[in-house]
Every structure is written in structure tokens, then in C-alpha cells.
Design a binder for these strands. Structure first.
Length: 555
RNA sequence: GGCCAGCUGGUGAAGUGGUUAACACAUCGCCCUCUCAAGGCGACAUUCGCGGGUUCGAACCCCGUGCUGGCUACCA
């Protein structure tokens, strides 16, 4: 046994597996040539961020359009920042958006043959690789204290040198294995560092699927790969996990771009094939004229839960994110108004380079459009799912009589150019509650918004009485309206708005005023969906009851 | 400070040497209309961060510069 091997044995006496064993345990995936294997690898440090949802959507979509695999891996190596239970929550929220991993960490359990999928449970796998690295002289123990590291940094800053652990500053890289072994036996604390042979002066060519060809300085940092707590750092976990989980495409935030040379060197020294990289733009927010990352602390819309709680349709949010991801999506949507968003083919070369400013107005517009194009059954189903969790009032309405609810929701729906009056499911209850008699009666106790300056109570009562006697609900919409015009004339109102405007003195008002009186009487409000359909749904009997109540109230 | 990336209207953007600088959202007008939601039509960048240069011609090519963001941890 040579000295390096002795060192490796001293540090990892219990590790008996070899890299070959791992290669056998995690074989190449049997997939078509162009299949993409990508992953979502969150840290359990909080709830799902809108930016993470964006990244996940992309990591999920590419495998799905290439018969590949999308898996999840929990990056829980930073035990200090970990928030209990947030891993499970992350997965739950993803599910709310219909994004289901094919494999990996599923919250309460794991699925697939490339696990474990929680990094904290993979410690031995990392150690196998590190042991091998040590034997090959690619890694070594470092005994530098954080104080001496700080001093070194200070010195480097003062002398305008690049900060870090590299070259002559990588003191422990000069330690002989013998000395290192002695110090370990002396119980000196240490971490394991990677021995870089790169030169900062050299440029390496790298390719990013989104950004194209780039030149970055070669890595020369002897980065820590195993922390003193026995867990790996991100860089090393990335190397090992994405290799043995057979990831083909690494999609991650652009904040990782500067560390790409580290990853390149790691893969090269390991002798493994590099995955393809795509560094995604970060979603931004305008704050006092400056762009900044969407922040969970400052921006409610940064937390995905905000959208769920406020009844935004999941599909609408995803559609907005796809709009940001590939600008040609909007064009496609115009051609395919009713198609499923996932029928759109996402591509890396159409991906934007700079982080989009989050545009809530656009989100709302998209959601409104999407909600309008849901059929009544689908709408009701989704509304109920939302209501179950977040909206007791709405839940109660749907439960009372699902078919009645569907009838209301279906006003001017299921046609080419559907009504667009709901941006979110939260909007539903306040818009439709007057359809329900008890709720109608409740709002009847408030003052009704009749225009008493233009019309006295007697006129309103006369109009309501006249209408009540001849509602015309047996007719189709056009004839119903003609009937309403007749009633208007009978009551001294002009049946034609234009004509009325030419000759206001001749009339009390116009047919629109008559409609308004009826509308207010049966709904207590000035705005409702198409009056004809509202009347039809309420039915003659209910309409008469309501009108009588209002006449009573006015008398 | 160093390194990297990005910069086209309020927003997302198309555009790669010759376009009236697409399109969508927002905003504002007008039209239609029984209210609302829509729908229709139109307005909104004299100009592509800025300054030079190349060219008959530049948002697109070259040089310089500014700004914004990221990275520079035993965080991810």
C-alpha cells in the first residue's frame, strides 16, 4: 500500500465499495438516444419559490417531450439552513401544478433505482468517490482553521490577489501524506479539498445550451468537497449525483454559471462524461427603478403558495412561465387557443437570456383567458378543489347543488369566444352569490343602487310590475329583448338608446334604464352577466318573488 | 476590486446589414352594446443603454464606455 492509499484508508476505514461497484449499481439508463434526463434538486430551505417553479417546469418539460426521465433530488447538505418539513411541502406544491416526478424524492417516499435521492443519505456514496480521489492524489485533507483562512483572504485582498485557496495559498496541498496522517491521528479537525491543477490565466471553452459558447477562466481553486460534518458541498454532490443518476441535462439558475469551471475540472479529473448545461435566467422584480431577484420576503408573488391561496388556476401560472421561457409560445397560443400548454415544444435556443420582470397583469390576463376556456365540468372541478382548501363560501355553494352551480358558471361559456369574467377562482363567489336566494335576501337588507335621482320610486315600481306580468322568458334571447323593448315603451321609456339620446324630453329613459331596474331588483347589483341568462336560471317563480320583495321594500 | 452575463416601448419580446422596428399584455381614445365581461378599430419606441467608427445604408459589424444582475463560503 502506498502512502496515499494508507491516507485514504485512515480517513475512510469503513468504505469498502469502489467506483466500479457504483458504476454497476447505477447503470446507464436504457433510453432512446435523444432522451433527456433532468432533475429538480431543491434545498429544503423554504417553500416553493416562483423562480423554482419556473426552473422545475423547464426541467420537467424537456424529459417529457423526449421520452426521458424527470426526477427530484433533495439537496439537504446544508443542515444549518434546513427548514423542517419543507421538502415534503415542495413536492406537494409541485403536485398542485400537475408536475409529478417520474422518479426520485417524492416527499414521504422515494421511487426509482438511482437512490437514495436525499443527499444526506448518500454520504457513503460520496465517500467512495472521495476515497478514490485521495488515492489518486486528487483530494487531500486540509487542516486550515477558518481564522487562518480569513487572515489569508485579508492578505490577498490587501495585495490585490485573487482570493481563495489555490496555488501557493493551498498550504495543505503541500503536506505529505505522512504528515497528514499524523495530524489526523492527533485528532486535528479537517475537511477534504479537491486538488486543482488549473491555471486561472487559461481560458476554457464551455457550451451552455441557452447562452451558447462562452470562455471562462480555468478553475484553480482547491475547493472543499467534504465538509467537517461529513457531507459534501454542492459542487461535489453535483459531480457524484448527476453522474450516478445519469443526468443528461443540468438545468439550474444562472447564479451557477461562474462555478462551471469547477464542475468541468471535477468531471474531467473524475474521468466522467459531462452533462449538458443550461443556465436559466432568474425572474426579477422592479424595485425603486432597480431590478432585483423576486424575493420571498418582499414579494408575495414570489411564493407559489400565494397563487394557490388566491385561486389562480395552476395552468395559468404555468402558461405564464412558459411565455417567459420561450417567447414564441405566445404566437403558438394564438394559433392554438384551446390546446394544452404541454403540446407546445419547448426549446433551449428560444430561451431568453435575461431575467424577465415578473408581470402580474400578464399573469391575470392569461388566467382569465384560461378560466374562460375551461368547460363547465372542468371549471367546477377545479373551483371545488380550490374552495376545499381556501374558500369556505364557495365550497358551500358548490356543495349545495353542483348542477345549479354549473348552470351559473356556464353562462356564455363553452363557445368560441367565451365570457371572461373570472381571473381567479376567488372571484367566483362574489360574482355569483346573488343567484342563491338566501344570499340574495341578505344583500337585500342593504340599500339598492337604484338611480333615484332620475327615477322616482313609483316609476320603478311600475316598471317592475309591468315586467313581472310579461317576462318573456319563454322566448329566445332576441325575442325576449324585443319583449323588453315593448315593456319599455309601455312604461314611457324609449326602446332604442340612440333615439332616446336624440330626443330625451319625449321619454322617461331608455330600455337600458329598464334593464337596470330589473337587474337591480333580481340581483341587488348594477352589474351581472347577461340578464337574459340570469333570469332564465333563476326561473319565473323566483324572479316574481324577488320583484315582489323589492316592490315591498320600495313602497 | 476581479471575473462572467445581460441591456430593443410601462412589461414580455420579434428582429442577425435595406422592415412604416412584428406580436402579446398594460394604458389611453373611439366604435359596438340593456349593465358587466368581451369584441372591433386606433394611439403609444422619430428609434433599439451611450459615444465613435465601418458602410450608399447599422438595432444588427468593429472599438470604446455606461448601467444592471450574478459569482468571488466548510450556502446552495
Amino acid at each position: 500500500m502506498n502512502e496515499l492509499e494508507q491516507l485514504a484508508e485512515l480517513i475512510f476505514p469503513d468504505i469498502t465499495d469502489t467506483i466500479d461497484d457504483l458504476e454497476k449499481r447505477y447503470p446507464q439508463r436504457n433510453l432512446p438516444d435523444n432522451a433527456i434526463v433532468a432533475r429538480f434538486a431543491p434545498s429544503p430551505t423554504g417553500f416553493l419559490h416562483t423562480g423554482s417553479l419556473f426552473a422545475t417546469l423547464i426541467a420537467w418539460k424537456f424529459p417529457h417531450q423526449t421520452s426521458g426521465i424527470f426526477y427530484t433530488r433533495l439537496e439537504d447538505t446544508d443542515t444549518k439552513r434546513e427548514i423542517e418539513g419543507s421538502g415534503e411541502e415542495l413536492l406537494k406544491q409541485l403536485e398542485a401544478f400537475g408536475i409529478m416526478p417520474d422518479e426520485g424524492y417524492m416527499g414521504s417516499y422515494e421511487k426509482g433505482n438511482y437512490g437514495p435521492y436525499k443527499q444526506s443519505q448518500r454520504a457513503n456514496i460520496y465517500k467512495v468517490v472521495i476515497k478514490d480521489f485521495i488515492k489518486r492524489g486528487l483530494a487531500y485533507p486540509c487542516f486550515c482553521s477558518s481564522e487562518s483562512l480569513n487572515e489569508m483572504r485579508k492578505y490577498q485582498e490587501e495585495h490585490k490577489l485573487n482570493p481563495g485557496y489555490y496555488g501557493e495559498f493551498a498550504k495543505c496541498s503541500y503536506l505529505s501524506p505522512k504528515v497528514a496522517m499524523e495530524r489526523i491521528k492527533n485528532h486535528e479537525p479537517y475537511v477534504i479539498r479537491f486538488r486543482s491543477t488549473g491555471n486561472y490565466q487559461n481560458k476554457i471553452k464551455i457550451t451552455d445550451l441557452i447562452r451558447g459558447n462562452l470562455e471562462l477562466a480555468e478553475n484553480d481553486q482547491h475547493i472543499v468537497i467534504l465538509k467537517s460534518d461529513g457531507l459534501p458541498t454542492y459542487h461535489f454532490a453535483h459531480l457524484v449525483d448527476d453522474h450516478f443518476m445519469r443526468t443528461t441535462h443540468v438545468t439550474r439558475g444562472e447564479e451557477w454559471l461562474p462555478s462551471l469551471p469547477i464542475h468541468y475540472e471535477l468531471f474531467e479529473k473524475a474521468g466522467w462524461e459531462k452533462p449538458k448545461y443550461a443556465h436559466l435566467p432568474v425572474i426579477m422584480k422592479l424595485d425603486n427603478g432597480n431590478r432585483r431577484k423576486l424575493s420571498k420576503r418582499k414579494d408575495p408573488e414570489a411564493a407559489v403558495s400565494y397563487f394557490l391561496e388566491n385561486g389562480y388556476p395552476a395552468q395559468g401560472i404555468l402558461e405564464y412561465l412558459i411565455t417567459i421561457a420561450n417567447s414564441n409560445f405566445e404566437e403558438w397560443r394564438l394559433q392554438n387557443m384551446n390546446a394544452n400548454i404541454f403540446d407546445f415544444t419547448l426549446s433551449f435556443d428560444k430561451m431568453t437570456l435575461d431575467g424577465a420582470l415578473f408581470d402580474l397583469a400578464k399573469v391575470k390576463n392569461i388566467c382569465k383567458e384560461r378560466l374562460a376556456r375551461l368547460n363547465k365540468d372542468e371549471f367546477t372541478k377545479q373551483a371545488y378543489e380550490y374552495a376545499l382548501k381556501y374558500d369556505d363560501n364557495l365550497k358551500a355553494l358548490i356543495k349545495r347543488d353542483e348542477n345549479y352551480f354549473k348552470e351559473i358558471i356556464n353562462i356564455e361559456r363553452e363557445k368560441d369566444n367565451p365570457r371572461k369574467d373570472y381571473e381567479t377562482f376567488k372571484d367566483v363567489y362574489p360574482i355569483i352569490n346573488f343567484f342563491y336566494s338566501d344570499l340574495y335576501e341578505k344583500s337585500l337588507t342593504n340599500e339598492l343602487p337604484f338611480n333615484l335621482e332620475r327615477f322616482d320610486k313609483a316609476t320603478i315600481i311600475k316598471v317592475l310590475n309591468t315586467y313581472k306580468d310579461d317576462m318573456g322568458l319563454e322566448y329566445d334571447e332576441e325575442n325576449w329583448f324585443n319583449n323588453l323593448k315593448n315593456i319599455s315603451e309601455k312604461c314611457g321609456f324609449c326602446s332604442n338608446v340612440k333615439e332616446y339620446k336624440k330626443n330625451k324630453e319625449a321619454y322617461l329613459g331608455h330600455v337600458g334604464d329598464v334593464s337596470e331596474m330589473i337587474r337591480i331588483a333580481i340581483s341587488t347589483r348594477k352589474n351581472t352577466p347577461n340578464l337574459y341568462y340570469v333570469l332564465k336560471i333563476l326561473g319565473e317563480k323566483e324572479v316574481i318573488t324577488r320583484i315582489d320583495k323589492v316592490i315591498d321594500k320600495l313602497s
